[in-house]
């Protein structure tokens, strides 16, 4: 049985007096994939920020690789790959410069070649020297995903990775997720409508009213099936 990479125990998150998340229990093992579905504004982005250790929980405990995020040694952050609502890219640097910078930050040897490899992997080789401001939204998203994955992280958290992507882009992301799962990484991502990935046992969760629950299909399979995106 693979290691538990992430564990949230009764995690709550308040903004002032307002609870955005409460009594959240969730865990992910290596090789597991989960998608968290919810309406806009329900708190999916907050959930990702809490789960990756960026935002401290107001209550409860979050364990990453079995430890509290504040006790993690700096090099261990290499094992976490995150895609947030903000792209985390420097607008005035080129696509290649962005990936090179992050490669260097993550301690990867031979960053230049590594960056070029990833650019090719996400289909941005021709746009390598263009500043991020000149990229389309879909290209920016691909670059952001490359940034998240370039250190081959064990724990991958993606906030709406399929947003702004065309069919090719979606296929690319699906392939990357499959690759990550194959090397026993855990992948958790959010979406605003349910979907499934062919050949992947995807845990389906729903975030509603601040609580996380397994997505239950109702008896009538017909209409629900048609809502599902198949990837």
């Amino acid at each position: 049985m693979a290691d538990v990479l992430l564990q949230a125990q009764r995690v709550a998150k308040f903004f002032g007096d307002r609870p955005v998340l409460h009594a959240l229990d969730f865990s992910a093992r290596g090789g597991e994939a989960a998608v968290i579905v919810g309406r806009n504004g329900v708190g999916k982005s907050t959930l990702i920020r809490v789960l990756c250790g960026l935002a401290r929980p107001s209550a409860g405990r979050l364990l990453l690789f079995g430890r509290e995020p504040t006790t993690l040694a700096a090099p261990e952050f290499r094992r976490i790959g995150v895609l947030l609502h903000q792209t985390l890219l420097y607008p005035n640097l080129s696509a290649r410069e962005n990936l090179e910078f992050y490669s260097r930050i993550f301690g990867i040897v031979d960053c230049a070649a590594h960056a070029l490899r990833w650019l090719e992997r996400v289909g941005l080789s021709r746009a390598a020297e263009q500043p991020v401001t000149a990229l389309s939204r879909g290209m920016e998203q691909r670059l952001a995903i490359a940034r998240a994955m370039l250190a081959d992280p064990d724990l991958i958290l993606l906030d709406e990775p399929f947003a702004a992507l065309d069919a090719d882009g979606a296929a690319l992301v699906t392939a990357l997720i499959r690759e990550a799962l194959a090397r026993s990484a855990a992948v958790i991502f959010t979406a605003h409508s349910p979907l499934e990935i062919m050949g992947v046992d995807l845990g389906l969760f729903k975030l509603e009213g601040g609580a996380l629950s397994p997505f239950k299909e109702d008896g009538r399979r017909g209409p629900l099936r048609s809502l599902l995106r198949r990837l």
């Binding site: 960026l54 952050f77 903000q86 985390l88 607008p91 992050y102």
Partner: peptide, 10 residues
Amino acid sequence: TGCIRALLLS
């Protein structure tokens, strides 16, 4: 641009 978050997670 939120890049400080990227640095925090590195």
